[in-house]
């Protein structure tokens, strides 16, 4: 499978879903799409037939507001149907605006930022205790790293030598109110995590090959957890949304959806 083509198709579905629902966090969805595609279509041992498999890999979307990207992929993978997902955010729908583990394929509920890393540490610790081969993956937002609880987790991961844990920081340099550096500076994220004892990889975060190579490298790293600082573009793939703080949770109009789809189709043709 060409993962880059898949990521473009997923982006088209995300944009369409958010327009249809009239709500969603489009900027962060588009920045994290490539990471999720690499994990769900290549790297992770997960699938609709494995939701209760004790050895399935674990995934936590700590930046839970980007659930539309996750839903779109889970629907495409057959955890539930694309038709069902059309009820997203509507009255009585089971698909709410943040991950919820009543939905097949979702491990834990998130949405309040700063929880996911600790939960992922618990999952990775359990694998060590039970000698299970599964790996745990978690995606944090860079704004999310303002939360003190993230750094409690950052201390604990190396403490327990969790080399079965891989953390992504979606380093798109934006949060709601503007750039991370204006709101609460994160540079150098690499130096911060390294000083906490992590194996730190810093990559172009919308580059599929770089993501895939980093995940492989993390798997081979022993004795400590890996954090992949994914230098992404918020809104990636739709040029008028890229790097615009306002597209954190704006909903595209029908015309904007058409323009976005056209651009994504062009990008796909150019692959």
């Amino acid at each position: 499978m060409d993962l880059r083509a898949k990521a473009i198709d997923i982006r088209k579905d995300i944009v369409t879903l958010i327009h249809h629902a009239g709500t969603g966090h489009i900027g962060g969805d588009l920045s994290v799409t490539d990471i999720l595609v690499d994990l769900y279509y290549k790297q992770m041992n997960v699938g609709p037939d494995k939701v209760d498999d004790p050895d399935r890999d674990r995934f936590v979307l700590s930046k839970g507001h980007c659930v539309e990207a996750l839903y779109t992929i889970l629907a495409d993978k057959g955890f539930f149907s694309k038709e069902e997902l059309q009820s997203y955010s509507q009255y009585l729908s089971k698909f709410i605006g943040h991950p919820n583990n009543k939905i097949a394929g979702i491990e834990v509920n998130s949405g309040s930022l700063g929880h996911g890393l600790s939960i992922a540490i618990g999952m990775a610790l359990a694998a060590k205790m039970d000698n299970r081969p599964y790996r745990t993956y978690v995606v944090l937002g860079d704004g999310e790293c303002d939360e003190g609880s993230v750094w409690e987790g950052a201390m604990a991961g190396p403490q327990y030598g969790l080399d079965n844990l891989t953390v992504f920081v979606d380093r798109n340099r934006l949060q709601i109110s503007g750039t991370t550096e204006d709101v609460m500076a994160q540079d150098s994220a690499e130096a911060r995590w390294a000083s906490f004892g992590w194996n730190v990889l810093s990559i172009p975060g919308n580059d599929m090959d770089a993501i895939d190579a980093a995940v492989d490298l993390a798997k081979r790293t022993k004795g400590k957890p890996t954090v992949i600082i994914a230098n992404t573009t918020k809104g990636c793939g739709v040029s008028f949304m890229e790097n615009q703080a306002g597209w954190h949770h704006k909903v595209p109009t029908a015309d904007q959806v058409a323009a976005a789809i056209q651009e994504l189709d062009e990008r796909k043709a150019a692959l």
Partner: peptide, 9 residues
């Protein structure tokens, strides 16, 4: 008031 964003909100 955050409606469909769910219980976290």
């Amino acid at each position: 008031s955050y409606g469909a964003l769910g219980m976290t909100h």
